[in-house]
Design a protein around this nucleic acid. Sequence first.
DNA 1: GATATACGGAACTATCGGTCTCGTAAACTG
DNA 2: CAGTTTACGAGACCGATAGTTCCGTATATC
Lengths: 179, 179
Amino acid sequence: MRSAVHDLLGEVGYQRCTVDAIAARAGVGKAALYRRWKSKAELVFAAVVHDDALPAPADTGTLRGDVAEVLAAIQSALDGPRVRSALPGLLADAQADPALVARFGELFLAREREYLVEMLDRAIARGELARQPDLIAVHAMLLGSVFAWLHLLSEPVPPGGFAASLATSLHAAVVVLGK
Amino acid sequence: MRSAVHDLLGEVGYQRCTVDAIAARAGVGKAALYRRWKSKAELVFAAVVHDDALPAPADTGTLRGDVAEVLAAIQSALDGPRVRSALPGLLADAQADPALVARFGELFLAREREYLVEMLDRAIARGELARQPDLIAVHAMLLGSVFAWLHLLSEPVPPGGFAASLATSLHAAVVVLGK
DNA sequence: GATATACGGAACTATCGGTCTCGTAAACTG
DNA sequence: CAGTTTACGAGACCGATAGTTCCGTATATC
């Protein structure tokens, strides 16, 4: 089931990954799919944003390292071949499906924000930050930078983990916000 | 024509802004639309990304001010009610339309990058930066932060220009990249 | 073993992007 | 002024696809 969606996303992308094709590939009837999921968008979303979609970034001991870790986690969540081909379509379909927006917020954004809060709390405890920075701004910068790189600019990702320079400069950005 | 697309985008969003509806609203036949534009995506794109879509940011005399200016320009380009409802759909459709990706790159990304280069050159001339920072990283951070704020996190935009704290911290990020 | 539930499969409906045809009105030509 | 050509509005038409319904069957439950 999930693998049927994964395969089709990789082979033909989101638009041509039709519900009929998913059902045929998975050897089930369309009705069964629509019994469990409300729409194609929900179905693909469920197959792509599984529980371990966003790995928990480790505590590296420094804010600089933690920022790099979070960036890598976001990259791994946004850069899989499946997600990469599914994300634009899902975002578009989500416009007409508030429930999907809510689930995306709960399953991905909220969890990501938790990780950010933990990271910032640790930095404050270490004395690297004086206070909690504007959480929305931090979230927008970290998530947005990776998203833009992968999905807007469509630039090739440099080898060796996500751009070290990006981590360095975003670390500086967070420090300024927590001053 | 352009106003028909604008009206419909505002009223019903991208998905339900059908070509039939555009033709009817504009009082023309569908064939006439397809004579000028190759697809619905191209048509909407042309109506939304007009030439003055990305205002040229002014030289404020400091890199800090210029970053705020660029952020404001990006916000104005990404936050109009039309663009806001059209962008996800256009990004999704563009996946299957390389020509559209190319035009988006030329009309928006390339122009934006020009502005960034000018901004960075001025900063170097002033001695605020020692060298050209990684342009892709700068571009990803500035564009991505605004995009994520508006289209991913769907947080309300704070009043009084685009988040001053975002400008401050992204300024610091750029400084680090140009060190 | 009888009954109820769920399923695979397929037919069906509605919507929408894109193409094609037609009749008409405007523009051009002699 | 008359004949011809061109472009257009209108709408019929086609193919693809999301979503629904129905049916015969297999599986699970009692």
